[in-house]
Amino acid sequence: MSEAGIGSGQGTRAWLLSEYPASRMQARLGRAYATWLRFAANRLAVVGLAILIALVLVATFAGVLAPHSPYAGDLAGARLLPPLSPGHLLGTDDQGRDILSRLIYGSRLTLAVVLMVAVLTAPVGLLVGTVAGYAGGIIDTALMRVTDIFLAFPKLVLALALVAALGPGIENAVIAIAITSWPPYARMARAETLAVRHADYIDAIRLMGASPLRIVLRHVMPMCLSSLIVRVTLDMAGIILIAAGLGFLGLGAQPPAPEWGAMIASGRRFILDQWWVATMPGMAILIVSLGFNLVGDGLRDALDPREAER
């Protein structure tokens, strides 16, 4: 670890790692910084984070970065050009569209799917799990049986059925994936809640007169949050794959949207002669999934509560 830094850098570091923080903000930032140090100690996790930051930047600046339009192709002059052709770094597809540009615009769809699924599923799973675990009794039984029912369906098949019922499209794919991916979070949150609900610090806060709602929101949930973050990050790779799978089956994003799974599907027809059409989006999916997995692994080490206890 490089300790060398300019004077002000060291001052900031000392301020962050102070054993005697002087304000709420400093305590919070110091804790975040300590977590970051644990995360950064894992080289692969930093590589994963770099991949994800690159994904976000590419998605944000797609309009500037893409050399061609993702939709308009040159059917007459540029059909199925191989990679490294002049003007088309990764080649073109069967409609003469630049694959690199489509991949760059496709990153927006991937990122949107991942973010929306995370925003929709994580809070639902957390709420259902913590309420069931803390309340116990009939509420617990009811909530967990509903969770079990959702868990009993094969994920992709239920997603397929939902998309078939709602109609194909990226929004419906997101809804389908969200409905099928919250139950594991609920189970995990419930297990964590059961582990802490009889802890002395929960009894202590009950004795302070806190309402059950306050206990669940402010005292139980923070204990479940770190493992939830790790789990959601690790699941992101799977979510990208399901979204791509739905796209591949023609039930996700619809043409001409440059969704990576749909791109693989359209390249399937010439996979032997023009391998790059299907391979390039496949590589993109691989790299982004790997990025999420590496970050998830790093977060698991950095956020481990036993680690933070020390």
Partner: peptide, 29 residues
């Protein structure tokens, strides 16, 4: 009526600062 528990390692919320631990009863009341 208030209570002090046996195990000081288990009776304080591990993710809250001391400030927050002391603020909580005041906020509730």
């Amino acid at each position: 009526v208030q209570m002090v528990f046996q195990d000081p390692y288990g009776s304080l919320h591990p993710r809250h600062t001391i400030d927050r631990q002391l603020l909580e009863p005041l906020a509730i009341h």
